[in-house]
Design a protein around this nucleic acid. Structure first.
Length: 417
DNA sequence: CCTCCACCGGAACGTGAGGAGT
DNA sequence: ACTCCTCACGTTCCGGTGGAGG
């Protein structure tokens, strides 16, 4: 059987496509290059703080601040890698280490569990630690016993530590207080914490008792400027792409410039560059052009919005739709009361429960945080205080996506404005 | 300067699902 | 079968508030 020529050509394109990438992973956020440009200062600071661990002395706790994609995580990992390999070389005290992302690991229990697992701690009977069901106290005891079983320095990196406190200010403070105070209860070992925060104001949320121990040392990660981004990209381009793929100097400049607009986020820059390469690859081309960069930018934007809207729970969809409907009726500014009324209609039409205004208010805030709408609290004097709401994404965008939901097909044109 | 609207947003609590141990 | 845990999602209650209009 002869191969269909079309498919044949398609596959050929993929084989040719290898001409684009040499090592695609070099453009991923998890990749740790052997040199981190523009972060010497931060690396030296953290290095000198952690240094005492090599002599078995407990390092101070560190808080790292900086917006997303400023290299906090990669620097922390890099320095710890170096520390551990140095310790192994010289047979000094090899510190234990753990890296926990507090945004994906959402509860105190699971954070403790993750810390336990990083050093293979088991239940007293030798079984694995269960996902849930244990009192949090108990798992803390297990952690401490394991730590104390032999003298060690334990460096725990708590990534995105701000989300821990923002999710639940009491719970967050509790676990941080518990961790920072552990040193007073441990006999042999010492624990030291590297907190990584995207939010510069995160300190305000911390209990002063927590802050005083956790924030012993602070390291700031400023955003990269366009020139630095270009430098980073240049370094990765050499690792990731085959020679001659990027002939146009403008490609890197453009990626750097686009990412610099997004508060100097290197992760975004690398993502954009990778998507650009993949786009060119899919088209079966051997070179990457500025046109590809622009396409990739659009593609990524559309992709993230589509994804967030699609995965919204039904109630949030109803709220978003009510904003959409009012916008469609020609209203630019929408106030909470109006939004709530529209929501009641739409939720009824969707035949889902209607929530209270209090709850809808929270959903509005969530949509705001997702960047789908913009809200500001405004005072209209005699006519009360409320939130001014505006749609932050294009109307077309919302409609096409929301229409996919089966419950929404019933909604009348009239209802949607 | 004071009032008072229409909501904001914190606190406490309820419910039901999901999992573990006994 | 029963107890004990956490967690997501909502509700009820309520004190707080910026500024237009009196």
């Amino acid at each position: 059987m002869a191969k269909p020529p079309k498919l044949d050509k398609l596959f050929d394109k993929f084989i040719e496509g290898q001409a684009i990438f040499k090592e695609r992973n070099a453009l991923r956020a998890t990749f740790i290059p052997n040199y981190l440009p523009f972060r010497e200062e931060q690396m030296n600071r953290i290095g000198s703080i952690l240094g005492p661990a090599l002599r078995g002395a407990p390092p101070s706790n560190i808080l790292c601040y900086g917006k997303t994609g400023t290299g906090k995580t990669v620097v922390a990992k890099y320095v710890l890698d170096m520390l551990v390999s140095k310790a192994k070389q010289s047979e000094a005290n090899v510190p234990l280490r753990a890296h926990v992302n507090c945004r994906t690991i959402t509860t105190n229990y699971r954070i403790l569990k993750a810390l336990c697992e990083s050093m293979n701690a088991k239940m007293p009977d030798g079984s694995a630690i269960p996902f849930t069901g244990l009192p949090t106290d108990e798992i803390r005891t297990i952690l401490m016993q394991k730590l104390d079983s032999e003298p060690k320095i334990f460096v725990a990196v708590l990534d995105e530590i701000d989300s821990l406190v923002k999710r639940d200010i009491n719970q967050g403070n509790d676990i941080l207080y518990g961790l920072t105070r552990m040193n007073g209860e441990l006999e042999n070992s010492r624990i030291s914490i590297i907190g990584i925060s995207n939010d510069l104001k995160f300190k305000d949320l911390l209990d002063p008792r927590v802050l005083s121990t956790l924030g012993e040392e602070e390291v700031i990660f400023p955003p990269y400027d366009a020139v630095q981004l270009r430098g980073i990209l240049q370094q990765r381009v050499e690792l990731a792409f085959n020679e001659g793929v990027i002939q146009d100097e403008g490609v890197i400049n453009l990626v750097g410039a686009l990412a610099a607009q997004e508060h100097g986020d290197a992760r975004r820059a690398l993502d954009l560059l990778r998507t650009t390469g993949e786009l060119a690859e899919r088209k079966g081309e051997n070179h990457v052009t500025q046109e590809h960069v622009r396409d990739a930018q659009k593609f990524m934007e559309r992709d993230t919005i589509t994804e967030t809207v699609k995965t919204l729970p039904a109630q949030s969809k109803a709220v978003l739709l009510s904003v959409y409907a009012l916008t469609n009726r020609g209203q630019k500014d929408i106030f909470t009361g109006e939004c709530f009324n529209a929501y009641m209609e739409i939720a009824t039409a969707m035949s889902i429960d209607t929530l209270t205004q209090r709850r809808v208010g929270d959903l509005i805030s969530e949509l705001d945080m997702l960047g789908l709408i913009n809200t500001t609290v405004v005072s209209k004097g005699r006519y009360g205080r409320t939130k001014r709401i505006r749609l932050a994404v294009s109307k077309k965008h919302v409609r096409t996506i929301l229409e996919v939901d089966a419950r929404l097909s019933k909604l009348s044109k009239e209802l949607l404005g």
